[in-house]
Design a protein around this nucleic acid. Structure first.
Length: 105
DNA sequence: ATTTTGACAAAAA
DNA sequence: ATTTTTGCCAAAA
């Protein structure tokens, strides 16, 4: 597994319940400022064994993922964690965006 | 080796 | 505010 992917998973595991991050931010925390799509590819593997809360990673504009099947799972998971979605089904990033991993602040 | 393909995102329109 | 275009970068075809 690439160094980048490892870091992506390690960081994603730190996302607290009830919070979310964009693929872009996640990529940035993992050291690849322009790797949003790569972070997405990594998440799509979403190793359950690694306990990665892949449903907490969404689009930078607060909208959820387009892939239908995953999108549904993601919406339900977030709602269950108490994340409120606006009438357009989007997350208020100002309120729910995760600040970043411990070893970064 | 070249082209296509994403669970993306910032910029332009 | 919403839709389209452009740029991204690794993996798969």
């Amino acid at each position: 597994m690439s160094e980048f992917n490892e870091r992506v998973y390690a960081i994603a595991r730190q996302i607290p319940c009830g919070k979310v991050v964009s693929y872009g931010m996640l990529a940035m925390f993992a050291g690849k400022p322009r790797g949003a799509r790569l972070a997405a590819s990594a998440m799509m593997r979403c190793p359950d064994s690694a306990g990665v809360p892949c449903h907490r990673v969404i689009h930078s504009d607060g909208s959820l993922c387009d892939a239908h099947d995953f999108g549904v799972f993601q919406r339900e998971s977030l709602l269950q964690e108490g994340v409120i979605l606006d009438k357009n089904g989007r997350v208020n990033m100002g309120r729910y965006a995760w600040i970043g991993p411990d070893d970064l602040a």
